[in-house]
Every structure is written in structure tokens, then in C-alpha cells.
Amino acid sequence: MSDATHGAGVTIRLFARLKDIAGTGELIRETPSGATARTVWDTLVSEFSELAGYASSVSVAVNQEYSRMDAPVAAGDEIAFLPPVSGG
């Protein structure tokens, strides 16, 4: 991770097809102050354009709790993006 510093970044978790698109289930990215989960998502979409198709169906969890795209996030947080689920 030459473009990110562990101490200053958020940990991004991706699952299922989102993980396939990004080629990894875990990334670390720096976030500006005032960032929200949506800021992080937009950063991902700019890196992996195929993720854009999930704009209306993705769910987000912050620090292992379901959250909202407008939730503030800060360094050290774990932000997970979840495609539509299919358990059972």
C-alpha cells in the first residue's frame, strides 16, 4: 500500500461480487476530514468503475454495524460495502 498509511486511513471491506470487481476484499485508503461513507464509496467507484452499477443497491456498515452513506467516517474506521444479500 504505497498510497496509504495504515494509521491515517480507513479500512474498506468488500464482499461477494464487489470483492471480485476490486480484486481484493480489503483496502486501506486515506480519507479527508469531514468524510462520510459516501466519500469512501465515491473514491472506490473512481478506482473501480464497474462498482458504479451498485450505487442504488449497496449497503454500508461502519465498524461492523449497519449504517448509512451519510455517516461520518474517520481514520481507523472499518467501512464495509455490501451488495444485495443472498443468505439462507
Binding site: 464482499f15 456498515a61 449497519y66 444485495p84 444479500v85 443472498s86 443468505g87
Partner: peptide
């Protein structure tokens, strides 16, 4: 409710290919 909000995904392997199954957008609220 499991099918609506459990963060679990099926990767289906079938004759001729594979596909991630995507059901409900998970929103507990």
C-alpha cells in the same frame, strides 16, 4: 429476515459457469 438482512452471499457454481446471487438490499431499518 435472514434473507432480507443477513450479510451472507451465495456464490453459485452451476453447469456452465458461476454467478454471485444478489437478493435483497440489506436495510435493517
Amino acid at each position: 429476515r435472514v434473507k432480507q438482512i443477513a450479510p451472507v452471499w451465495k456464490h453459485e457454481f452451476f453447469e456452465g459457469g458461476d454467478v454471485w446471487i444478489e437478493g435483497a438490499t440489506a436495510d435493517p431499518d
